[in-house]
Design a protein around this nucleic acid. Structure first.
Lengths: 240, 240
DNA sequence: TAGTGGTCTAGACCACGCT
DNA sequence: GCGTGGTCTAGACCACTAT
């Protein structure tokens, strides 16, 4: 590992490993080389390699297991539930929602879609419309837009075969790992269509969650707007 | 430092330091002893002391500054803005809201208040009602309930002298440091009173943020419900 | 028994802030 | 120049997992 000064070694190691993760150098769920091997290959001490790996673990990009090794993080139900799904029952119960896809269509991105996905206007976008259920009742109406370039042919998949947890599909079938996301929340009013889906009166308040998701390499890999009935659920956030 | 096995040393050191912080052993903003001093006092290596201090820094309880020392974290405008206030202008502009207190009253806690503050029903509670402005317009109606035991006489303070940033007041005048908080968000409907304050039509959707704040020792030190006009602002959250 | 990550130590050197 | 936290190393030992 070179030493261009002023940039800590462990940061350089972390970035090297991150680049390999983003390249698909290791498959999701597979083991990374052990600390001594990484340290030897990159010419740093084991402590420095460890620090880089710990940083990646803190960002949920790898999982470290004592006695076993370090593994590329996968999008498990667990991770979806505790990191990417923030609606919780008012009694405190957490559960992943069911999913029913209404439509999947490809088309040229509108100006707004292009802006949100950071792709050229008119480039191929895939739009997904689905309902999600909590405790057996429809609680979320979701509109998802994907950059077509990353998910070739996804619009031709059978609607029923699209899994509840899309992030697992992105990862396994398209090699796109969602690394992090930014959410913007607003109170909105249910229009007639959303209200009908949610079993609410038109004009009822709904929580709108607007999420931009980023892949390992920093590219936007999904834009999703979820409109939620929060009459018996809430969005939970921790503040430090 | 004893070694009851199975509990890492750096965790014990971290807890010892946290206990001292909670005790008010060091004032907010003051410097902690340097690493070698802490290590010597507790009989651990400097590396172990460092790890404990890094953990506290990660939780925003202390601030480390190279060349200067480690300081007890203070509730600065900066911290309020980036850690405890999540409403952002839709254009991306962040700004702390202004504050106008409508009323401050003490009284016995209702059952609900007692539950939320984890105090006995009927114990003294202080209720604060205020409006907050963004870009010069009222955008938030806030109802705050405090456990009277922690803030002796706060209800007798001049309304106009209550600062915009209450957490600084809690810290400086009452020695109560807000360490972290849990927020629950819902979409709600503005009643006639809130709507009038916010300049909205009654029945308009508002974002309700229900926050429970915890002091360094883990006790609930505030319960706050903010109802926000999100027509030109949104609540921002990061997901990892 | 061998290999993995987790903890802990001791010490060197660097970058920064002060005086 | 001196004291602070930040980086980096080398090595010991522990706890866990597999075989």
């Amino acid at each position: 590992m070179e030493t261009p000064k002023s940039r800590p070694l462990y940061v350089q190691v972390r970035e090297t490993l991150l680049r390999r993760l983003a390249d698909g150098h290791w498959r999701a769920g597979s083991a990374l080389p052990a600390e001594p091997a990484i340290a030897a290959e990159l010419g740093v001490s084991q402590g420095t390699a460890r620090r880089a790996l710990d940083d990646l673990a803190k960002a949920n990009l790898v999982v470290r297991r004592q006695g076993k090794g370090t593994f590329v993080a996968e999008h498990t139900r667990e991770r979806a539930l505790f990191h990417f799904f923030h609606l919780v029952g008012d009694g405190g119960k957490r559960a992943l929602p069911g999913s029913r896809v209404l439509s999947v269509k490809a088309g040229p991105a509108t100006r707004e879609e292009a802006r949100r996905l950071a792709i050229p206007a008119g480039a191929k976008a895939v739009r997904l419309h689905r309902l999600r259920t909590l405790d057996g009742r429809v609680a979320i109406v979701e509109r998802i837009v994907l950059p077509g370039a990353l998910y070739d042919g996804i619009e031709r998949l059978d609607r029923a075969s699209l899994p509840n947890e899309l992030y697992k599909l992105y990862e396994q079938r398209y090699g796109v790992s969602v690394a992090h996301a930014a959410e913007r929340l607003k109170a909105a009013t249910a229009g007639p269509e959303d209200a009908a889906h949610l079993g609410l009166r038109s004009g009822s308040p709904v929580l709108e969650i607007d999420r931009t998701a980023y892949a390992l390499d920093g590219r936007v890999c999904e834009w999703r707007v979820s409109r939620c009935d929060t009459s018996s659920h809430h969005y939970a956030a921790e503040v430090v």
